[in-house]
Design a protein around this nucleic acid. Sequence first.
RNA 1: GUCCCCAUCGUCUAGAGGCCUAGGACACCUGGUUUUCAUCCAGGCAACAGGGGUUCGAAACCCCUUGGGGACGCCA
Length: 494
Amino acid sequence: MSEIRTRIAPSPTGDPHVGTAYIALFNRCFAHHHGGKFILRIEDTDQVRSTDQSEKDILEALGWLGLSWDEGPGIGGEYGPYKQSERGEIYDQHIKQLLDTGSAFPCFCTSHRLDDLRKQQMSDKAAVGYDGHCLQLGPEAVAARVAAGEEHVIRMKIPKEGECTFDDMLRGPVSISWSQVDMQVLIKSDGKPTYHFANVVDDHLMRISHVIRGEEWINSAPKHILLYQYFGWDVPVLCHMPLLRNPDKSKLSKRKNPTSIGYYQAMGYLPEAMLNYLGMMGWTMPTGEEMFNLQEMTHSFDINRVSLGGPIFDIQKLDWLNGKYIRESLDDQQFAKLFAEWAFSADKIQRIVPLLKQRVERFCDVAELGSFFISANPTLSIELFEHKVLTIEAQIKILQFSLWHLEALEVWNREFIESSLQGLAGQLDLKIRDFLSPLFLAISGKAVSTSVIESIDILKLDITRARLRAAIDVLGGISKKMAKNLEREYRSLD
RNA sequence: GUCCCCAUCGUCUAGAGGCCUAGGACACCUGGUUUUCAUCCAGGCAACAGGGGUUCGAAACCCCUUGGGGACGCCA
C-alpha cells in the first residue's frame, strides 16, 4: 500500500475555528498512526475574504495545540507550494484540460440572471441549480466572447441522469443522484479556482490518500469524484466526520458559542486539555480512558471508533477536564510558570500597565482595578445597569449594536474601535458617556474602570463578544422578535 | 421545499446478536474526609425515539414512521 497522506485545508477567512482543529486532529492521528504524513494547505482562493492575519492566526493556533504538520507552510515539502494563491498556473493548466475535453464550459450568465433563475425555481418548487443556459452556445460564439474579454466563469458538466455512489470510510455506500448536483463553478470570474476545483487538483497532486473532512461536504462529494474521473485520476478514500454542535444541536457557530481557538487560549485553557477534549468528541480510547495526550491518541487511533452522532461541544466537561489537567499534570513550578506567562505576558502587561498606573495610588490597588483583564467574565446583575437616562432596552441595543460594529471592524486597534463606537453613539444620538456605561459594566463588571475602549482592544474580540453577550443575557436577552427589530434598525443606521 | 447524513442517560460515550437487570465520565443530588471551600472518596438520579420484521434470542441486523442535523453560493 502506498503512503497514507492526509491534510487539513483551512481557509484563512476568520478566527481559527475549533472545528478546524478538530478535523486536523483526526487527520493527523490517522496519518501518523499508519506511519504516514499530515499536510497543511492554505485554501486562500477567496480573494475578498482571505487575510494574512487570519492565516497567521490559524497557523499559530494549530501550533499552540501541538498539531504540527509534516508538509506545508513554514516546513516545505516536495509537493508545494502549499498555498493555493501561489498555485495559479497549476489551476490554469488543469482547467484548460477540462475545457479541451469538453468536461467544462464557459458561462457568461450574470449574477442577476442567476438570482432570478433561483427565485423562479424556488417559487416553482423545482430543484435549484444552473439551467445550462450557456451550454447551448456554439464554440465560435464562445471563442468570440472570451476573446472580447467578456467576464465569465467556468462550470463543470454534470450527467443528467443516474447517480453517484461512493464508499465513505465510516458510513459505507452513499448515493446521490446527479439531478441533485449543480453545474458547479470551477473558475470564478476573477480567474481564481473555487474550493471544489482547487481541492481536487491539489489533493491529487499532493498525493492525498484519505480525505477526512466534515460531514457538511458529503453532498459535494459527487462533484469531486466526477472531477477526478474527468482527469482520469484515482479518487482518494473519503471520510466524513460528524459536525461539532452548539448546545441546541445546530452546527457549532460563533453566534451561539465561542468557536475561536484564541478564545479558549485567552480564557486560560491548557492546549493539552483542549486537544484531549476535541479527541473525545466522537471518539474514545479502546480502554475507555478519558484522559489522553496526542501521542497516546495517535498510538491507539482507529478511525472506526468514531461515532457518527454530532457531538455537542460541552464547555462544562471541557472545564472539568482542564481542571483535571491543572491538578494532575502540572507541578507547582509549572503552574506558576504557565500562569504567569498566560496572565502577564510581556505583550499584555505592557499594554495594561499604562492604564492602571495612572489610576492607582498603591500597588495594592492594582489587583482590584485590573482583575477583569485576567478573570472570567464578570458577575453581573441587572441592578448594576440601573441608569439615570438609559432604559434596560436601550442598553441592550447599545451592547448588541456595539458587538455588530466591533465584529465588522477590518482592523483591530484602539483608533478603529474608538471611531467605530463613537460613530455609533452619534448615530444613536447618545452622549458618549451614557453610551459607554453599559459597555463598562459588561467588560469590567464595574461602572468605573480603565478606558473601556482600550480594554476592549486588549481583551480582543473573542472575549469582548462573550462579555457583551453575557451582559445582554443578564439584561433579559433578546427575543426573536426583538432581534428582528434590532436588525432592521441596525441596517437603517447609515 | 428537494436531497443526503444521523439517532443509547440532560451532555460525551461503551456496546461488532446471548457476557445488558445497558457500563463509564461530565452535570446534578446525598453522605464521608478536610478549620471553610475546592480536591478526593462512597453512593444516588438518569437512556436503547416509536412501530413492524429477521432470529431460539435484538440496544445491536432490515424496513417504515418520527425526531435532529447538514447541503442546495462566482464561501470554504
